[in-house]
Design a protein around this nucleic acid. Sequence first.
DNA 1: TTCTCTACGTCAGCGGTGTTGACATAGCCT
DNA 2: AGGCTATGTCAACACCGCTGACGTAGAGAA
Lengths: 241, 241
Amino acid sequence: MNDRVVPEPQRRRRRPTKQGVVLSAELIVDTALRLIGQHGAEALTVRRLGAALGADPSAVYRYFHSTDDLLLAIADELIGRAQHGWQPTGDWRADLRAIGLRIHAAYQAHPQAALLAAHRTTGRTHETAAVEAMLGILRTAGFPDLEAVRIYHAFVDQSLGFAALDAAALALPAPAATADLEVWQASYARLDAATHPHIAATAGLLTTDMRRSGYPYALDLLLDAAAARLRAAGSGRDRDR
Amino acid sequence: MNDRVVPEPQRRRRRPTKQGVVLSAELIVDTALRLIGQHGAEALTVRRLGAALGADPSAVYRYFHSTDDLLLAIADELIGRAQHGWQPTGDWRADLRAIGLRIHAAYQAHPQAALLAAHRTTGRTHETAAVEAMLGILRTAGFPDLEAVRIYHAFVDQSLGFAALDAAALALPAPAATADLEVWQASYARLDAATHPHIAATAGLLTTDMRRSGYPYALDLLLDAAAARLRAAGSGRDRDR
DNA sequence: TTCTCTACGTCAGCGGTGTTGACATAGCCT
DNA sequence: AGGCTATGTCAACACCGCTGACGTAGAGAA
């Protein structure tokens, strides 16, 4: 870990680079996201980032301890964008569903970045705000603390897991992506009913269903199960609120 | 893509390396898996693999076009291992649960191979066999075809999504991995109850629960919901089987 | 207005990476 | 016995993340 990073409050940030750009942590994160979006995940190297910024590559290390540090900042930015503009309605199930779909959508918008960021825990402001919101929805709905935490955990990892999975499909190089999709018609739809009766019987349904994300359906299943547990907990000790 | 790879049938594979090892694609895959298991995620580099094999690093390129090619070969091996030795019991819920946990476990055993493999559709024998088994379980249990396909889709993608997510955590370089875990104590456990009441109220539960995978709980939620839908479908047109 | 101090952009370089062209040779085939 | 070629080895390339050293812009103090 290097110590060239000056904490935000002491920054005077006055000095433009040779090419006249005034750097900031924010600008670097935005540029990194743009770089990833335009040229793929492998385009995010310190040297290329420096070039895109119009600065010496090592200048990045004045703002982030390492590339991993930068990645965490990117991850938090993505979470922030998912939350942006969201308002709770008071209906726990609708609220949770909306958050899940928002997370999924935000990551799909930056597939290559999502691949790198989906599995990190940042502990930064946007992330903690999101966690607080989700826990709040569950606890306010009446879930006991232990169950609220477990459902939160399952819910958020399900969202991120599907987000990463679907992002990976989007981030695949074009030929590989189409190849993966065609497998369902080229291979599964032609399997012999004698050896693969169940696939043969549902081939048509399979090829259409596998084309889109399984997340919305999986999300509804999870919310179904959560609602059932809430009902069970509520009827257990009948008086609540 | 290089073309130094000789297709398997033409191989004469006679020449031992300087250190007396006779190479083969199989040996390389096994050694790579062992390397990952013993020395962590970041140990899988071509140079280190060469050293572990007792051969020049570039010898690997006589068997695989690239490291990605090698990782796909490893992935194919993993799918087989997940299924290996599994026997259906006839209880659809127990069977599906077992398959889910097996997939998850197989990927956890070799995290960074899992990372690259989880989102590919291969259409190869191991994969089609697994799909056939899962669909068979659902259809035999009495799910209508459309629902069987949808639940299969949600189930398999949830398994792979969690597998990829948890694998990514394991595949992280050691410092980043510990940092991610410590965030829950260093950051979340210290948030002010005034600004983050729900996190503060559940901090203890959070830090312990987030240490392990959320997959088993999420899996049970999904199976709960599926069982409920099966009941609903069954009572709809009462006579089945 | 001038001086000082330091934040921070730049440069050169280290030890790593995947990959490839050229070369030497082991050992199967005739 | 001899040739052919599969395959192991070597050296080198281009790139990577990262760091120590250095110069200087420009804000703050006087």
